[in-house]
Write a protein that binds this DNA or RNA. Structure first.
Lengths: 351, 351
DNA sequence: AGTAGTAATGTAAGCGCTTACATTATGTCT
DNA sequence: AGACATAATGTAAGCGCTTACATTACTACT
């Protein structure tokens, strides 16, 4: 295998070795068209012998496709995106595609990046994951010939596919669990920054399903965090200091804030889940380690779906699709049935 | 700006618009050579007007460089790699490069990926981060014309640059802290899988500096974890169950295992740091949230360095370099000065 | 055997750039 | 003003592929 060191072996070399035209070799590379099985094998053999690999730039130039997908993520270097990226990469690799990964610092940066990538024809499709991208921008680049897939941000634009989290379903399950299985009567909510897609959706769902399941959200116990640990800690801490009567449980709209709550409780010797139940959202890596009850978001699977949509979109023919991923409630140790609770309805206690 | 929608504007279009040859336009793109400032500006203007962006495939084909770096990471989709990747991307973006990111499932997969990327001439250089890559393989691909940068795995091969963690220094500081500031007398060690570069290095350093600082590692209290939470938990759990007399502190050779230890303690109501000190290594995202005392590894900076080395390596002339990154001790709340300890030497207690 | 019809292969024209080399414009010196 | 060096620009040959179209090799008929 691989006689020639690693200098460029070209189509032409292969064609000479087995005395066919470069067109034929090209055909067997793209294992398309009809090449006589006999010649095909001969060519394959020669390619192997010479260690031939098609030059990707030449293919891109001549064939108008790069077999590369652009992936633009916001600059939050967390495990969250790593998981999505892993899913994307896995699905791409399976189809012989690659991921050109970029992290954006801010919105302007992201826009510039996007335009550049698009104009330079570096990619066959683009996967964008940024909740804050304004519609106007999305519409603008939707004009481009390059197909787009939006992650965690459904779009109303027809041409654009998207993969997002079924926040409603996630909150619904969480609320149902808190009410029915744990017998909680009232829950506090720590939300994310208003205006963020996920935060707004989850918060709305909280209201809706709290009502549906007969949970009360006491006024004053619904606050906006900023999706980060310290803000949530501060809120919880101040409530405790002020001696407010806490609700039965807190639902934090992401795990980091849930842990912020929890840490504040720990600091004040409020025991979880005995005195206060805590439930998060996302199921980040360490949620399992800590035993945080939370709503699992299938990040890897979202990545896979996004990549599949992106690949499909390259055909131009397949219509855009909007996919919504269901979440899964991860019952761990930060919520527990209250002794004074009325008997659970329907489902039995799990685990 | 940007008259033509987004269909391909080529060099030729620009050249026609301002009545120069394509060579001249090419020259201003590469802002090299001497172009009369006057024409340069005219061409720039025309490019802007037409919304011209050079086609990356064509440039790669004609110019033999892709301005893309390959980045291959093992499949551990953790925040760890996300941070490194962020650093890489940041440094690349600054120089107008891109990252082609790939996750490998296993060793064979990684080898195949590497070869493919190299042969297809998709990248100008390759950044590899995988502790388990055998030397033979590294040597093999070192033959390739594509420069290589190894992350977290120093190489003895001359042509190859590397960026790695100064494990020695990290452990040294940790040990010094445990001995001098905390006054611990004996510490247990939970190591990683033997044979892994980082695990071996850190373990050796533990022995060396325990001795140097007069710490005792009691026999039986040095075990191999597998760098994961559950194994560390199990070890700690069994020690406690068996009623063994625990050392003053445990040093876990990464944070996940430190948390495993900690969780086992929590489960058995052993208070940290009062009854047992715990120190980790890595400073993963949640170490700060939890208050774990640990050794900070500058992941983003490692990524930046790696990217810089990779870019430098493209010049062919600049020699390979080996960089070692110093760590920083993050004193948080899982270690504390023992009451019965002898007075601290040298440094005063921090914070 | 001759001929149409199809399967297999070959020919050659790009894809949009870079760049060595050729050519022309500009300035400098006697 | 003419000769020459130098700066600025133009010309054209690729880079290694894909692919429409042309050509040739088969097969199966009458």
């Amino acid at each position: 295998m691989n006689d020639e060191a690693s200098s460029s072996v070209t189509l032409y070399d292969v064609s000479r070795l087995c005395k066919v035209s470069i067109a034929t070799v090209s055909r067997v590379i793209n294992n398309s068209d009809k090449v006589k099985p006999d010649t095909r094998d001969r060519v394959r053999e020669a390619m192997k012998q010479l260690g031939f690999r098609p030059n990707s730039a030449a293919r891109a130039l001549a064939g108008q496709q790069t077999r590369t997908m652009g992936v633009i993520l916001p600059d939050i270097s967390s495990g969250f995106y790593a998981h999505v990226l892993k899913g994307i990469d896995r699905a791409l690799a399976e189809k012989g595609f690659h991921a050109l990964t970029m992290f954006s610092h801010d919105l302007e940066d992201e826009k510039a990046l996007t335009h550049r990538i698009l104009d330079e024809r570096r990619v066959d499709a683009l996967i964008l994951m940024n909740l804050e991208l304004p519609d106007s921008f999305i519409e603008e680049i939707a004009e481009s010939r390059t197909p787009l897939v939006l992650l965690d941000r459904p779009s109303s634009i027809r041409k654009i596919s998207s993969v997002s989290i079924n926040n409603e379903q996630g909150i619904k399950n969480a609320m149902a669990y808190l009410a029915r299985e744990c017998g909680y009567r009232n829950v506090g909510v720590i939300s994310g920054p208003p205006g963020t897609y996920d935060a707004d959706q989850r918060l709305m769902a909280c209201h809706r399903f709290a009502r549906r399941y007969g949970l009360c959200i006491p006024p004053g116990f619904i606050v906006n965090g900023s999706f980060d640990h310290d803000a949530a800690y501060a809120v919880m801490d101040s409530w405790i200091r002020e001696g407010k009567k806490l609700p039965d449980a807190m639902i934090a709209l992401n795990d980091v804030m849930a842990i912020g709550c929890w840490n504040a409780c720990r600091h004040h010797n409020i025991s979880v889940p005995e005195e206060l139940g805590i439930i998060g959202f996302d199921d980040v890596e360490y949620a399992r380690l800590l035993g945080l009850t939370t709503v699992h978001v299938p990040l890897v699977e979202m990545g896979i779906k996004a990549a599949e949509l992106a690949i499909a979109a390259c055909d131009q023919v397949s219509p855009a699709r909007m996919i919504m991923m269901d979440t899964e409630l991860m019952i761990r140790s930060t919520c527990r049935r209250r002794e004074d609770a009325p008997p659970a309805r329907k489902k039995k206690e799990k685990k």
